[in-house]
Design a protein around this nucleic acid. Structure first.
Lengths: 218, 218
DNA sequence: GTCAATAATGCTGTATACAAGAATAGATTT
DNA sequence: AAATCTATTCTTGTATACAGCATTATTGAC
């Protein structure tokens, strides 16, 4: 059983928030949620605190827990930081990466390409993630690796929609290749620039998505 | 009263860990701590989870909470990330900083210099912190500002000891000046390089401190 | 004498009961 | 009629009681 109770509940709640069951600003009633998950308030409160830690809910003392989806501005900020942090990973990895990791990157990239050819966005998504996680690890800094992974995870639900944009996967592949080249030639600045651009463009794509969404709803 | 109970306890516990009352690997008994703070286990557990979030304790399910001081390797990693993240702040701030913020930086720097002249390391420490926090804010990215501030806070107890190193404050002042120049001329790369070097050197100073400590104890 | 197995103790994780504060609704006053 | 104050109710924060798992110690067997 362990403490997994709170952990499992936190994950389920996360899903419910992403699914839109609870939307921004909603108050999360402890009692009702406790009934829903068939647990007492104690583990549920711990789950809420876990979510507060990752920024998904805001805990206001004596008032309750409120769903706090990051707004467009904050999302852009997070994408900007993601781009910079990945650039850092790239710069460090360029001089620290192992040969076997380079081989793994090639492998992930080839599978990405195969996914593009098959129009299989699910596989592409998975291999793309593997590609990036290899770079995090090869930064040779496990603290950086963990923190970058956390931010990556937080942005996951927002990055996913972009794959549907026409031509995005092909463009992304080209960027991957230049990243790989920079890493292979051991050029820190080139790797940093390539990765920064690669991730930053996701933020911009996301931005235009938001704008179009607004236009559509107006 | 609010939920501040857990927050206050978390801070006190943090102090106790930094003071050495609890050292690395110590198990934190919930019942004894609850008695010590005159509260029940419930708010104390919340405090422990808060500390787990900042990485000071490790929560092992069904085993308890253990003090987890970062080891030398992890500390070096954290300093490296700190240097890179501050460099990012600098690069963004170089093109976004306001005139009034530049004036504030000058002011903080002058007060730093005055503190060096007076051999007042306490004041130096405070103004130095202000100097850096202004740059975080002027990155124009409040998410980055918050995250950088968090890491800064986490490294606080380890950075403090370095000020005692002979000549460190003077050297630091020179670095501050070059940072300020880069920001004033709006040169992103120069600002990034200056800040990275300024912070990275703290990690190296810390490293040599550790080595000396080891030599002394051997 | 040593190792293993079982029992007992002590801790964490969970539930429930209680207290205090916040929000809302109703009544009274201006 | 509107606004304010008060009282009631609902919710959060805290304490305590209970259950389950881990650790340790003791006993028995090899």
């Amino acid at each position: 059983m362990e403490q997994r109770r709170a952990d499992a509940i936190a994950e389920e709640l996360e899903e419910l928030i992403f699914d839109g069951t609870f939307s921004d600003g909603d108050r999360l009633d402890e009692v009702r949620l406790a009934e829903r998950f068939r647990v007492s308030r104690t583990p549920l409160r711990e789950a809420l605190q876990r979510l507060a830690r990752s920024g998904l809910v805001e805990l206001i003392p004596r008032r309750g827990a409120f769903v706090r989806q990051p707004g467009p501005v904050e999302l852009m900020e997070m994408f900007e930081v993601m781009a910079e942090v990945e650039a850092v990973c790239g710069r460090l990895a360029a001089v620290r990466i192992s040969d076997s990791a380079l081989a793994d990157l090639h492998d992930a990239n080839q599978k990405c390409q195969a996914a593009v050819d098959c129009q299989n966005s699910e596989t592409y998504y998975i291999e793309n993630e593997r590609f990036h996680k290899i770079i995090y690890k090869q930064s040779g800094n496990s603290f950086l690796e963990t923190e970058t992974g956390n931010l990556h995870r937080r942005l996951k639900p927002f990055r996913r929609q972009q794959l549907r944009l026409r031509g995005r996967m092909a463009q992304s592949m080209a960027e991957h290749r230049s990243i790989l080249e920079a890493l292979e030639s051991g050029d820190p600045e080139a790797a940093a620039v390539a990765l920064r651009g690669h991730v930053a463009i996701q933020g911009e794509k996301f931005h235009s998505l938001m704008v179009n969404l607004k236009k559509a709803s107006a």
